[in-house]
Design a protein around this nucleic acid. Structure first.
Length: 517
DNA sequence: CGTGCCGGGCA
DNA sequence: TGCCCGGCACG
């Protein structure tokens, strides 16, 4: 009797002839039907934009004119009210003042986007770049706008300074606190990775130009549509630990990760996450390796990806940090300019043969989760959504995932699950896991990878310093019940009707082990 | 209200 | 031990 019923149920489940209840539910949740994701071709509304940007983005304007060098607090300006200003057209290179981090900072205009009325300013003091509303920026009526080329002789205003790096002034300030330096570096990093548009060092291998393309456009679009935290790219995490540079990936096959990772971007919603900054646009050729760990150069337009730390370090050092290798304070600097990228690849599911059972996405929750300071526009555009949830138009979770593609097998033993590991490496590193982001809908929506998702996300306060600590402590707070992971779980991904594809844990209503968060 | 998952029950 | 589900917490 009971047995039969049970069986029946099972059968029903398996056969897609769902019973009433189930189906009803299904109907409700548009899980599977909702395959969003426009027509294959239509996807890239980005493309053009990207190009545009690229084209438009002027020359770098090599940061040479570092007039203000280190002595920052030198209030260049008065400009008490930050607002009432005449809306001027800022030109690239123009010196301006802007409120940042509670204080007035001077910087150079990177570009002024009229469309959104935003100005991207490169802060000399902080060595980073922010993007804020035009009205929050006012010209520093001190100097004349410098077009784009560094003035031949800057001796006039700039004391002696030696170019440390080619375009970026590395946080080499002599402030005492070392941590500060590192933090700054992190910030720089962040900003770099998020808004590479800016400078484009001429002679660097633009091997990854695509990354730029991928990044910019949606940064841009984010701004335009004002969808909240637009600029969020991988999650950054810093770790000061100096050990085991090797992430726990069994089979990091050294492949050029260039392409790949975009699985069947043709039909299911699985598109690559725009934010993944590697993304080799042209060929969605799929590779079927599992996890690769690569090191990517974060220098503005250099997307060089190498397979070894040493290599990347050397690259950064040689190409970007230039000759400054000697002074040992730069010794470590290369660390800030590259990032570890872990790519997980799913076999294209030519039948579900797949890899990597457990540690599905390599989660990056480093020992001390470093704030990913929502890059630029932090304080400018009001309340940025702290949560990551903003990334999905909720309604639009395309269920996609009809079975085939990426299926991670191996569920069993859900409880013996190896809590995922956190690769710790000496450098700030990002781990990006595309695996899960069933990026849904339009490729526009900035779907973030779910790395580091610990629901207590980082808020984007401008003052990030103390943040660092806060974050890390906050993380630990989930004591009783696992804070609801925000990763899509099997149910969501596959839909109830494909329950047989869920991981066992999910099937048993246990903590999902496939998409752990 | 949907969903993730703990706790516990049944075979 | 494998499987399932009631029910609660979270969003």
């Amino acid at each position: 009797m009971e047995k039969t019923t049970l069986k029946q149920r099972k059968m029903e489940r398996k056969g897609s002839s769902m019973a009433s209840v189930l189906s009803r539910r299904l109907g409700k949740r548009s899980l599977l039907g909702a395959r969003v994701l426009g027509p294959p071709g239509a996807a890239p509304p980005l493309e053009p934009q990207a190009e545009l940007l690229e084209g438009a983005a002027p020359q770098p304007f090599l940061a040479s004119k570092d007039t203000s060098c280190q002595e920052q607090p030198k209030e260049l300006l008065k400009a008490p009210g930050t607002s009432g200003l005449q809306q001027v057209a800022f030109q690239p290179g123009q010196k301006v003042c802007v409120w940042f981090g509670g204080q007035e900072c001077t910087g150079l205009v990177e570009r002024h986007s009229w469309a959104e009325d935003k100005v991207t300013v490169w802060l000399l003091d902080q060595k980073l770049q922010i993007c804020c509303k035009a009205e929050e920026v006012w010209p520093a009526e001190l100097q004349s706008p410098i077009p784009q080329a560094p003035p031949p002789e800057q001796g006039t205003q700039a004391p002696a300074y030696r170019p440390v790096s080619r375009n970026i002034d590395v946080p080499k300030r002599k402030s005492d606190a070392v941590e500060m330096d590192e933090m700054m570096a992190a910030m720089v990093l962040t900003s770099l990775s998020c808004s590479p548009v800016v400078q484009s060092p001429p002679g660097v291998e633009t091997n990854f130009s695509a990354s730029r393309a991928a990044c910019d456009p949606w940064k841009e679009s984010g701004d335009v549509s004002d969808s909240g935290s637009s600029t969020t790219s991988g999650h950054w995490s810093g770790s000061s630990g100096v050990s085991t540079p090797s992430p726990p990936h069994p089979q990091a096959s050294p492949k050029y990760l260039g392409d790949a990772f975009g699985s069947p971007q043709t039909d299911n919603g699985f598109e690559t996450d725009p934010d993944a900054f590697l993304l080799d646009e042209p060929a969605p050729r799929k590779r079927k390796n599992s996890v690769k760990v690569m090191y990517k150069c974060l220098w503005p337009n250099c997307g060089k990806v190498l397979r070894s730390i040493v290599g990347i370090k050397r690259h950064v050092k040689a190409l970007h940090l230039g000759d400054t290798v000697d002074s040992d304070q730069f010794k470590r600097e290369e660390d800030f300019y590259y990032t570890e990228v872990q790519m997980k690849e799913e076999a294209t599911a030519a039948g579900g043969s797949t890899v990597d059972p457990a540690p599905a996405p390599s989660v990056a929750s480093p020992p001390l989760a470093v704030l990913p300071p929502p890059p630029p526009k932090a304080q400018s555009s009001g309340p940025d959504h702290p949560g990551l949830e903003s990334y999905l138009p909720s309604g639009a979770l395309s269920k996609s995932a009809p079975g085939s593609f990426w299926h991670i097998q191996a569920d069993h033993a859900y409880q013996a699950l190896p809590s995922f590991q956190i690769p710790v490496s000496p450098h700030i590193y990002t781990s990006i896991s595309w695996a899960t982001a069933p990026s849904t809908a339009s490729s526009l929506s900035p779907v973030r990878s779910r790395s580091l998702s610990f629901s207590e996300p980082q808020q984007p306060p401008p003052a990030m310093k103390s943040h660092l600590i806060v974050t890390s402590s906050a993380r630990a707070q989930s004591s009783t019940r696992k804070a609801r992971g925000e990763a899509k779980k099997c149910r969501k991904v596959y839909g109830i009707e494909h329950r047989d594809q869920w991981c066992t844990a999910c099937r048993w209503k246990k903590a999902c082990q496939r998409f752990l968060d």
